[in-house]
């Protein structure tokens, strides 16, 4: 049995709007997955069902062998941590330190462990110098790292990042990359929603493509970007280099700058 299982999952919001229709997939422990797809496709709704913020209105979500309907919210939040798309939906403490400490504290870790987890995840998120700051005096992009650190500090097996790349600069992206690499090494299962196709190419082997309330395809970066019909249907764009290559009629499998330089410099 897989670590995360969605069996014909659907979700309708209380106002009756159906946001996810029939999503079916399995994720193994330690897998690292990017979810991409157009605005409103149902990405956020789907991942919120992994940590019980939402419970499916049809089908079943199984985490580590157990139906999320049979978990208490507390028990499920030990398994899966979710970083909100909008950091301001998540932050409610007056300092960065309090914000990060809150999760491990509530999970019942002792003082020493809370401190250790807090400092570790703050360092990973590049926040060690901002610990006594009020999160609301920090730019939105850094506030996003505060919310990421607070989830990482809970040391859950599953970490879900909802658009961590939004509004990040090159250093922010690099911090995220290092962080994902380290968490991957620790055996975490990481699920990341993003619209940044370069980020997908550089960091993920497996890609879930969502559109129109459903999961269209499970694939990998090379394949997504060579499937024009899929790209059109899910409103995705190729990475910049890939577009350049296509317009020049060069081999389609070139998707990064390095590959293009190598191609141009190769002796004919």
């Amino acid at each position: 049995m897989a670590f995360i299982e969605f069996n014909h999952v659907g979700f309708a919001y209380p106002n009756g709007f159906s946001a996810v229709e029939d999503v079916d997939f399995q994720i193994e422990k330690g897998e690292n997955i990017a979810i991409v797809g157009q605005n409103g496709a149902g990405k956020t709704t789907t991942v919120k069902m992994m940590n019980g913020l939402l419970k499916p209105t049809s089908g079943t979500v199984i985490i580590d062998g157990k139906d999320t309907r049979n978990f208490t919210t507390a028990a499920l939040s030990r398994k899966a941590g979710y970083v909100f798309q909008n950091p301001d939906d998540q932050i409610f403490h007056n300092t960065v330190r309090q914000e990060i400490e809150f999760g491990p504290h509530v999970l019942g870790y002792d003082k020493e462990k809370v401190k250790e987890l807090t400092e570790y995840s703050a360092k990973l998120a590049g926040l060690s110098d901002e610990m006594e700051e009020n999160p609301y005096n920090l730019p939105l992009s850094i506030r996003k790292f505060v919310t990421i650190a607070s989830v990482v500090a809970m040391d859950t097996d599953i970490i879900i990042l909802d658009e961590p790349t939004a509004g990040q600069d090159i250093r922010g992206i690099a911090t995220l990359q290092d962080m994902i690499r380290e968490l991957k090494q620790k055996g975490k299962t990481i699920i990341t929603i993003t619209h940044d196709m370069e980020f997908v190419v550089n960091n993920f082997d497996k890609v879930f493509v969502m559109a129109h309330k459903n999961l269209l395809k499970i694939t990998n970066p090379k394949e997504v970007f060579s499937d024009s019909a899929l790209l059109d249907e899910s409103m995705l764009k190729r990475p910049y280099i890939s577009e350049l290559v296509l317009q020049l009629g060069l081999p389609k499998n070139i998707i990064s700058r390095k590959e293009l330089v190598d191609y141009i410099c190769a002796p004919v």
């Binding site: 798309q85 658009e163 409103m235």
Partner: peptide, 12 residues
């Protein structure tokens, strides 16, 4: 930053 959360088509 009007496009930070937009898909590539909407960004364009």
């Amino acid at each position: 930053e009007p496009t930070s959360q937009l898909d590539p088509k909407e960004t364009e």
